[in-house]
Amino acid sequence: MSVRRAEKWHVTLVFLGDVPDHAPVADALRKLPAPAPFRLRLSGAGRFGAVLWAGLDGDLPALHDFRESVRSVLPPSDPRPFQPHLTVSYRFDRRLATALDGYAGPTWTVDEFCLVSSVDGAYHRVWTRAFAS
C-alpha cells in the first residue's frame, strides 16, 4: 500500500500548471476578500485512473464558492469539473479503496489557503493567507 505522506496532503482548488513567476498569481490572490472559515471532513473514496482519493464532505457550498472566487482572479485553468478530494495514493489499491469507501472522518476547520508550487514531487508553499476570523 503506497499512501502519500501527510506533508503532501492538500485540496487543489485550481491547477495552474507551469507558472514561471508566482508573484502575479499571489498578487491576484491578495485581492480576494478573505472568506469566513468553514468546516470539511473526509468522506468516502474515488479514483482518477490509478489515483486513489478520499472525498470531502461538510460545508461544500462554502468550498465551491471560495473556489469560484479564486478562479475569477486567475487565468483560465483546468476545465474539468471540480471534484473536491484529497489524493491518498498514486497507485490504486483495492484494500485501501475499500477501507475508505465507507469512511467518514472528523471535521476540521479550513482557515487558510496557500499558493503551492510542485517541483519534482515536492510541494512548497509560495504564499499563504489566513481566512477572516
Rank of each mutant, 00 (worst) to 15 (best):
Y103W: 13
V14S: 02
S117E: 15
Q83H: 14
D120C: 04
T87F: 01
E68T: 09
R30D: 13
S89Q: 10
A130Q: 14
A99D: 13
L60D: 04
F131L: 13
A45E: 12
R41Y: 12
P61C: 09
V110P: 00
A99G: 10
S2E: 06
A104Y: 04
G17R: 13
G44W: 09
R4F: 05
R67V: 11
P106N: 09
G121V: 08
E68F: 08
L42T: 00
V25S: 04
L60Y: 01
S118D: 10
V3H: 01
R80Q: 13
W108S: 00
D27L: 13
D78V: 09
V73A: 13
A62I: 05
R30V: 10
H64K: 13
Q83L: 15
V25R: 02
D59I: 06
R41N: 12
G105P: 00
P35D: 09
D93I: 03
A54I: 07
L100H: 02
F92E: 02
Y123W: 07
H64D: 10
E7I: 02
V88H: 00
F113Q: 02
A36K: 14
D21R: 11
G102M: 08
R125V: 15
R125C: 14
V116D: 07
L60P: 04
G102V: 06
R4M: 06
A132H: 15
Y123F: 14
G58H: 02
C114K: 14
D59L: 02
Y90C: 00
P79K: 09
R94E: 15
G44V: 06
L100K: 01
P24V: 03
G102Q: 07
F38V: 13
A36Q: 12
D18W: 07
F82Q: 12
E68V: 04
V51Y: 05
G44N: 02
S118T: 15
F92I: 03
D111Y: 07
V73G: 08
G58L: 01
L29F: 07
V116Q: 00
D78T: 11
R39V: 03
D120H: 11
P37L: 05
E68R: 14
W127K: 09
V11Q: 03
V51I: 10
D57M: 04
D111R: 13
L32Q: 11
G58I: 01
T12Y: 00
T87C: 06
S118V: 07
D101H: 13
F38Y: 14
A104S: 14
D18N: 12
P76E: 10
L63H: 01
R95N: 09
Q83Y: 09
A99F: 08
Y90E: 02
G17L: 06
L96W: 03
W9H: 14
A104T: 15
L29K: 07
D18F: 08
D18L: 04
A122I: 12
V116F: 06
